[in-house]
Amino acid sequence: MIKMRDLVLILAVVVLAGCTTNKSIEKQNPAHKIPTSTPPPILGDTTMTQSVPCANPPCDSYGTAIGSQQDQSSSVDIPDRQIIYFDYDKDNIRPKAHLILEEHATYISNHPNAYIRLEGHTDERGSREYNLALAERRANAAKEVLLILGVFENQLVTISYGEEQPVALEHNEEAWQLNRRVELIYP
């Protein structure tokens, strides 16, 4: 199930990405506050593969977020961005997704009683069983990054939903990109 926060994020992403095809989502303009940091356009993400994570805040919004969270660790909220996205039939972590995972690693490391459920998803294309395996690989890829970033394994669980829980029901590239994802859920 998708939380309102996630929906807001997706909305923001869709709007900012300038996608005009996703009308059913755009119409539901939320009354809620859009996250202050600017989410990147998802579809342009593949062009970011050469960018290097910024070490020196405030050169981009993620760097700022990480730095500020480390300073006020115990009081800071669960990171806003709780979804990372993937390429078609791939499980490698995009640079942007890595930054989001870093935010969560920081948060969870400072909240030893919390845990994250990593829910892997694919788009609707292809075989249902293969997609269950692919979605699990995506969840495991996110888990591996979090482990490398110092998160304890007992704070992480993974589950695969394959193509079973799309957030966008259209049958086009924009919807498929929104659905190829791992959600970081704090149960």
Partner: peptide, 8 residues
Amino acid sequence: TNKRTKQM
């Protein structure tokens, strides 16, 4: 399903 997570 159980309290902490779901298991296939």
